[in-house]
Design a binder for these strands. Structure first.
Lengths: 135, 135
DNA sequence: CTTGACCTTCCAGTAACTGGAAACACTAGG
DNA sequence: CCTAGTGTTTCCAGTTACTGGAAGGTCAAG
């Protein structure tokens, strides 16, 4: 399979497939006489796996970890569970943040008449509140 | 005010304040004889405004837009409302995505025994499902 | 005068790609 | 066999929004 075929099969852009090979996330594919990358079905499976994991918000580094576990089924699934659970917590945290963001902004939008008067609660709301300085 | 004072007042790292001046997001500050940046209260207000807007998920480009509106109160608040509403929709969309992500991953984690058996529903779940190819 | 904190500029790096240029490879039609 | 068009290669640069660090100038205290 040439790169565009495998890219389509995996649901990834060609550039990304090349990139994943470049950074060693997936093994370097065989090459044809003319230098074309030649992928097999195993490569497709791994790329699909990576795409899915990325969609779940796993970083490329975490994908590397997961792929290692995926490759070596003898390792305990506890490792996988640990990684996934940590990510689950991060997602939940992000959801909470997003929720408060949404509520606050929605409140401002609601309060905004959206007409041509110069005062605007959204602007005013952005201007308000000063938190503690960072680190 | 020197940069560290204004940074603290605005709740931003020094580097970021310098960066915002560099990219012209906020106006280039006056300089002392020795070349030190010298900020005034208006600069602090703008930086606070930008920090808040960034916290709301507005991109730097959008902050530029908003800052323009903020600077020119004669413009209608409809513009502000339009931008904020669009962002609100994006936040809601992101929340929905995050929710389905969370549910799916939580399901997999629950199904995972987390022991030393070689099969792992999380791995299997990541391996499954192939969507349409992108763009 | 020296020490230490603060400031300057510039360069590089981050994450995860994405876009584009220049050049070679392959396939189909004429 | 030639040509056009598409696919592929490598490499370099750019993206976003900073962040870290080096080399060096400045300032206030003791």
């Amino acid at each position: 399979m040439n790169i565009s075929a495998v890219a389509e099969a995996a649901g990834l852009p060609v550039k990304t497939v090349r990139y994943y090979s470049d950074i060693g996330l997936v093994p370097a594919p065989a090459r044809s006489d003319s230098g074309y990358r030649s992928y097999d079905d195993a490569a497709v499976r791994k790329l699909v796996f990576v795409r899915r994991a990325r969609e779940f918000g796993f970083s490329v580094g975490e994908c590397r970890e997961l792929l290692g576990l995926y490759e070596d089924r003898h390792r305990s699934s506890a490792d996988v569970k640990r990684i996934a659970t940590r990510r689950l917590e991060e997602i939940a945290e992000k959801q909470r943040e997003l929720q408060s963001l949404h509520d606050e902004l929605a409140h401002l939008v609601e309060a905004c008449r959206g007409d041509h008067r110069p005062d605007c609660p959204i602007i005013d709301g952005l201007e308000a509140r000063r938190p503690a300085a960072p680190e």
